[in-house]
Simulated scan of single mutants.
Amino acid sequence: MYVAVKGGEQAIARSLELLAQAQRGDTAVPELELAQIREQLRLGVARVMQEGSLYDENLSALAIRQAAGDMLEAIFLLRAYRTTLPRFGYTLPLNTAAMRVRRRVSGTFKDIPGGQVLGPTYDYTQRLLDFEHAPVASVTPADAPLPPDMPRVLDLLDAEALIERIEPGSDPEPVDLTREPLTFPADRATRLQNLSRGDEGFLLSMAYSTQRGYAESHPFAGEIRMGEVDVRVCPEELGFAIEIGSIVLTECQMINQFHGGNGVPPQFTRGYGLSMGEGERKAMSMALVDRALRCDELAEPDDAPAQDQEFVLSHSDNVEASGFVQHLKLPHYVDFQAELSLLRTLAAQHATPSPVQQGRESFEVPTA
């Protein structure tokens, strides 16, 4: 096989030259600045950061430009770069309840503490191409500031003991999937980590399947919030937590019906999703799939694709999936020639009757 591709080095070098030209495009057109991508393609930047597992808007914008807008390739680039970075430690759990909210809506209660905050969303647009691209009015100081902290909507149900209670820190310490292989069965903390890196399109399809009856789930969007959250670490030499910055997150908590079981009374259950930046569709899909994967824990039938954790978790990673599919473009000359030779032999044997078959044919007597 290696002999067969030995003469391709010159062709590969020329292909890389052509790729550089294609990435740049017409040199008469000004090159995209990273700030333009970061500010005007922020949703694409957020997706690459999320599935690339690296929160850096500039690096994400660079990857998108280098990949000519191919998000999967950009995610691959960012993950590859991530492996070269040193790791200093882990942050403390993020407190999304103290999020400085930019958008916060609930599909379950009209009036919620702090109010519905529509924020930046395409939900209320007409999905018409804007050929005029009218300038956007700037925010004036007269706009009422949002409350610094907004209570969680699901706390309303928790106060009545109508929804399952999950105590902070009750989940086991998750393994680091960037360093340890995924094993089955996976606990919920590990599943959530896997889903957070999963392909948005795949998770969207899985989530959609649960809404069409391929899982016993009837979801309600309990709360979706997007905003800034402080990041803290606790250095060993200090012995106390310090704030090192903030990141933008999108969090979704789905409310699902549950009829009780395993000694648990009838109550609502939760599905959870979290995404870097503005990633509402990803967070919602993740929350729906998370709830579907809890079927064993809640003694529910597990006959739907979205409830099969090995199927979902093993096929949700777009970098692995893309690599496995696209490796078919690489030379497989020797493998194919072996199969071709075998097929020719089998075809020849099928076309030439064996001596036993010839003998049987000679004794066949025609019937009227």
Rank of each mutant, 00 (worst) to 15 (best):
Y90G: 02
D155C: 02
S60A: 15
G271D: 04
Y333T: 15
L342N: 14
A11I: 14
M284D: 02
N58V: 11
E180W: 05
D303L: 08
A98G: 00
M49L: 04
G44C: 02
S60F: 04
T269E: 04
R127S: 14
Q40A: 07
A292W: 06
H133A: 12
S53W: 12
L177P: 05
G271K: 05
S196W: 02
L162F: 09
G359Q: 14
V319M: 07
N58Y: 09
S354F: 00
V248K: 11
R152D: 03
A189G: 06
A351I: 03
P301S: 08
L34D: 10
G245T: 00
L288T: 05
L162I: 04
M99H: 01
R281Y: 02
F109N: 06
H315N: 15
L274A: 09
A22Q: 14
I242S: 08
I166E: 15
P355C: 10
C295N: 11
V229G: 07
T190Y: 02
M254K: 01
L154Y: 10
L274I: 12
A144K: 14
L204H: 12
L118C: 01
S316C: 15
D302Y: 06
I163S: 00
V3A: 15
G227T: 00
T210K: 01
N58W: 09
A299N: 10
G359P: 01
D155A: 11
P30Y: 09
G114P: 05
